[in-house]
Amino acid sequence: MQIKRLRIAGFKSFVDPADLVIAPGLTGVVGPNGCGKSNLLEALRWTMGENSAKSLRGAGMEDVIFAGTATRPPRDFAEVSILLDGADGEEREVVRRIERGAGSAYRIDGRDVRAKDVALLFADAATGAHSPALVSQNRIGAVIAAKPTERRAMLEEAAGIAGLHVRRRDAEARLRATEANLARLDELIADQDVRAAALRRQARQAERYRTLSEQIRVAEARMIFARWREAVAAADAARADATAAEARVTAAGEAEQAAAAAQHAAVAALADARGAALAAREAASEAGHR
C-alpha cells in the first residue's frame, strides 16, 4: 500500500483545502518552524484512527479544527482524506471528518465505516496511527532507545503481521463475548426449565380442574333432570286433583241448584199454606160470630 495524496481542509493550520501529492520516490517537505510540517504527520495519524487528543498536541479532539485568527474566522469542521494505492492496484480513499459538537465520522470509498474498519485496513498494510514508521518530532531518540517489546512491534509491522494481531484480538474479544452469551444462555435455559416445571404443574392442576368441572356439570345435569321428573310427576298429580276438584265443584253446583229449586217450591207451598190457614181462621172467626 502506498499513499498517493493527502488532502486537508480546516485541519489545524490548513484552513483552506490543500493537496499534498506523494509521487513515487522520496518526497520531502521543508519549511520554517510553525509552517505546519508536523500537522501533515498528525493529519495522517488522525485519519488513520488516532483518538488521543494529547498525541495530537491538543486538549480535546475538536482542537484539530481551525480555531481562527485575527483575520480569519474559525471553521466548523475539519476533513482529511488519504488516497491509497492498494496492493491489488486499486485506489482507495479514506476520509475522516469532524464537526463541532457532532463528533467525527469515517468513510472508505464514500461508504460510512467504523473507526475499527479503518484501523484494520491500515493494520493489514502494516501501518497505522501508532506505527513506528510515523516518527513525530522529538521521537527519534525514543525509537533508538526502544524496549524489546517496542522493537518486536516494529519488526512485526515490518513483516506485515500487525493486521493478524488486530484480527486475533478481535476474534478473542468475540470469543469472550460468545462465551459470556453461552453462560447467559445456560442461565436462561435453567430458568426456562424451572418455569416449564411450574407450567407442567399448573397444566396438571388445570386438567384436574377441567375433569372435576365436567363431573360437576354431569352431576348438576342429573340432579336437574331428577328435579324436573319430580316436578312433572307433581304437576300430573296436581292436574288430576284439579280435575277431581272440578268434578266435585260441578256436582256441588248441581246440588246447590236443586236445593235452591226445592227451597223455592217450599217457599211457595208455605205461602199457600199460610193463605189457607188465614182463610180458615177468618172462616172460623166468622162462624163464631154467627
Rank of each mutant, 00 (worst) to 15 (best):
R114D: 14
L40D: 05
A247M: 08
A259T: 03
T27K: 04
F77V: 03
G49I: 10
A265P: 01
L199Y: 04
R195Q: 11
D241L: 10
R195C: 00
L26K: 10
P24W: 06
H289Q: 07
Q215W: 03
L278W: 01
A235W: 08
E207N: 11
I224D: 15
Q137K: 09
A203C: 05
V166G: 03
V94H: 05
P17M: 05
Q215N: 11
A126G: 15
G68N: 06
E256M: 13
A277L: 09
F14Q: 06
A277K: 06
R239P: 01
V30L: 13
G253R: 13
A67E: 07
A226E: 15
Q2W: 09
A284P: 01
A284S: 07
E282V: 00
R274K: 11
A67M: 05
K37R: 11
M48R: 13
F225W: 05
L185A: 12
V232L: 11
A231W: 09
I189L: 12
S52M: 08
G49S: 07
T71V: 07
V95I: 11
Q2M: 12
C35P: 00
A196S: 07
I216W: 10
L6Y: 03
R217L: 09
E230D: 14
L20N: 02
G128C: 04
R5G: 00
N33A: 09
P73N: 05
I189P: 00
A129I: 00
V267W: 03
M48S: 08
E150S: 11
D170L: 10
V30N: 04
G89Y: 08
A162R: 15
D124Q: 14
R169Q: 13
G253S: 12
